[in-house]
Design a protein around this nucleic acid. Sequence first.
DNA 1: ATTAGGG
DNA 2: CCCTAAT
Length: 575
Amino acid sequence: MDTESKDALVDENASIFLHSHAEVDQDLSYLTTFEDEVTRLQHYLPECNMDCFDGTVGFETFNSLKGFNVDSFPCAFDYDHINFDSDALDLYLAQEAEETKGDSNTLPATNKKVLGDFRIDSACKGTFCAEPADEASNSSYGSCEKTCLGNVALKSQSSHFQKRECHSEISSMYPSMEIALESASDRAPLLLDKMRTQDLRQVFSRIFGWETSVMDKQWLKRRIVFGLQNRGELVDSLNLLEFDKTSNADEEKAVVLLNTALSGSACNSTDILDNQLNSREKHVKRARLAGCNSLKSVSSPLREVGFCSVSESNTAEALVTQKQTRRPTRICTKGLQEQNSRYHHRKCGASYKNARDDFLNVKTHKHHCRRGTGTGQLNCQEESLKGTSSCTEVPLGLAVQIGESTKKSHLVNDFDNCKDNEVSVSDEDFDRETSSAESQDDVSEVDSVTRRKRGRKRKQRHRRWTPSEVMKLIEGVSMYGVGKWTHIKKLLFSSSSHRTSVNLKDKWRNLLKACNNEMQKKRKGEQGETQLSHQLSESIWCQVRELAVIYSYPKESKSKVSCNTVASSTPSYYC
DNA sequence: ATTAGGG
DNA sequence: CCCTAAT
């Protein structure tokens, strides 16, 4: 590959990535998937250097000014395989485009290896390396000039990683990533490339459910490929496409095949979501390394399950998983603007904010609807439904513990009540926030139905604390003490963007209260246990009690804990 | 920016 | 979970 063609290649990639902001803002479909956000990210890093890819890898923790938050970067691995696919696809498309320039129709076999030969070098412990096995590419690998796209510059600097003791997890991640790469061996683009722009757009609309104004073939191809992948039908489609290709089918057929591949299960994303709302596998693909830097390596068993499923991407199960992982989203702004007077904007979690709102400058409006606003709440929900009927995504009923409603009065609003109505948020928020493998048990069908009836958007503010989260919190308190919420957050909840330090504090407060209630019940001999107490073993309460004694939470101690436990009772009495 | 505490 | 005050 000579210099000239490299430049051309860069240009090709530029056409992939560098859509204008106006274009991005105009077409809401740009904001629908993580992959789009990577694209958007690259607006800011058009030079496409190594760090650029670091950025895509650790998107959540990316800060345009500071680079990565090193602390949490190691936990951002859940996106890696996606990005690999993306970048590999970029490279592939670029090379393919270049090839087809000189050689119109034939698609050299060398194209295939572009994707297939990626390997993840796990030799560098704690360092994330992905390099093309291609020698030619490697030759200019280090330079990281504008050709880095062609070189697949996916390499993180070791220093970013060696800080954390995630090595084992990272290592265990490699197999799945390799598989992810394997499964992405894309021949779909081959066929897609033969299709006219109109066809691509047609396919796009079939996949995503709405028309896009984008005429960029590269972009459309990427979207389609990822759309297929999202629906877990990439493999199937590839098979169809492959077959189709060998049988000399024409473009029309390609469209038909693509549509066919999609029509079976994917044409109505709403229905799909309805049906698959509560599937526990939804989060698998994005299973993150939650708690990977936990000092005691509080491991979530579900994590392994997640990775396992990813590795088995050829199984039907994994297909389902993929299908549920990402889905098209529409950004709803119309109607909301009318409602803005009823809302007020509100800040949100720090990391979240940094990674998204600040950086991307997305139209991510957070609307806040408080109970005290009279008719506001109901109206806003109903009207936003009306005004944005075209984008009424199924509310992904998030976990709300019904059982807790009976205990609501005892806790500090642990059971939250419809405060935020967050719309126009890209999928990733949801995925990210629900991707924690631990939260898989959270989904309450009854509640999701309830929410749906109430016109609830898919964004739920309240996330039930899972037992493992509680355990992490308790562990954190025991290690750092009460009040060190920021430390605990950073060290144990760095991967849980939705758990802020304040949340931890609140949860601890609630835990103390709940713990106290448990004890009172025990004294009375009652057995009416809360759902929470079912999930949390007795040892948990025991730990809470002891910690409550040690650290005696301010104010809380005066009322119940200290009066009952510290003063009169032996903390370990019930243990 | 964090934390405590009320709602 | 949200908000505010205090630090």
